[in-house]
Lab assay of single mutants.
Amino acid sequence: GSVVKEKKEKALIEVRPYVEYYNELKALVSKISSSVNDLEEAIVVLREEEKKASEPFKTDIRILLDFLES
C-alpha cells in the first residue's frame, strides 16, 4: 500500500520536468491508484490508458511508465 503510493508519488515528482500534462497525469495516477492493489496492476492499467491516449499525453504516460518500471 504505502510503498506503492510512495513509488508513484516519487515517480510523479521525477517526471514532472519532462511531461507536458502534469496535472492530467497526476489525476490519472490518482484515479488508477484507487482501483488497483499494487504497482504491477497500476502499470498494466497505465499501459491500457497509453494505448487510448493521443499525443502528447501518450508520451507523458510513457515517460511515467519508464520511471515506474525502472
Rank of each mutant, 00 (worst) to 15 (best):
1 G>P: 11
3 V>W: 03
3 V>P: 10
4 V>N: 10
4 V>L: 14
4 V>Y: 10
4 V>Q: 07
5 K>T: 11
5 K>S: 12
6 E>W: 07
6 E>L: 04
7 K>W: 15
7 K>R: 11
7 K>A: 14
7 K>G: 06
8 K>W: 15
8 K>P: 14
8 K>C: 15
11 A>V: 06
11 A>P: 02
12 L>E: 01
12 L>H: 01
12 L>I: 03
13 I>E: 14
15 V>A: 06
15 V>M: 02
15 V>Y: 01
16 R>V: 07
16 R>T: 04
17 P>K: 09
17 P>E: 11
17 P>R: 09
17 P>H: 06
18 Y>M: 12
19 V>E: 04
20 E>C: 15
21 Y>L: 12
21 Y>S: 07
21 Y>H: 11
23 N>S: 07
23 N>W: 13
24 E>H: 07
24 E>W: 10
25 L>A: 01
25 L>D: 00
26 K>R: 09
27 A>Y: 07
27 A>I: 08
27 A>H: 05
28 L>R: 01
28 L>W: 05
28 L>K: 01
29 V>A: 04
30 S>G: 09
31 K>W: 13
32 I>K: 03
33 S>Y: 15
33 S>Q: 05
33 S>E: 09
34 S>K: 08
35 S>M: 12
36 V>F: 05
36 V>S: 06
36 V>E: 05
37 N>V: 07
37 N>R: 09
37 N>Y: 14
38 D>V: 06
39 L>G: 04
40 E>F: 09
40 E>L: 07
40 E>H: 07
40 E>M: 09
41 E>K: 05
41 E>D: 06
43 I>F: 11
43 I>R: 03
44 V>F: 14
44 V>A: 10
45 V>A: 13
46 L>E: 00
46 L>N: 00
46 L>S: 00
47 R>C: 06
48 E>P: 00
48 E>V: 12
49 E>F: 10
50 E>Q: 11
50 E>N: 05
50 E>P: 00
50 E>Y: 14
53 A>C: 04
53 A>G: 02
54 S>K: 06
54 S>L: 07
56 P>M: 04
56 P>L: 04
56 P>E: 03
57 F>A: 01
58 K>E: 00
58 K>H: 01
58 K>D: 01
59 T>P: 02
59 T>L: 13
60 D>T: 05
60 D>E: 02
60 D>M: 15
60 D>R: 04
61 I>L: 04
62 R>C: 07
62 R>N: 06
62 R>T: 04
63 I>G: 01
64 L>I: 03
65 L>W: 02
65 L>H: 01
65 L>I: 10
65 L>P: 00
65 L>A: 09
66 D>R: 15
66 D>K: 14
66 D>N: 13
67 F>H: 08
67 F>R: 06
67 F>E: 04
67 F>D: 01
67 F>W: 09
68 L>Q: 00
68 L>E: 00
68 L>A: 02
68 L>K: 00
69 E>Y: 12
69 E>R: 14
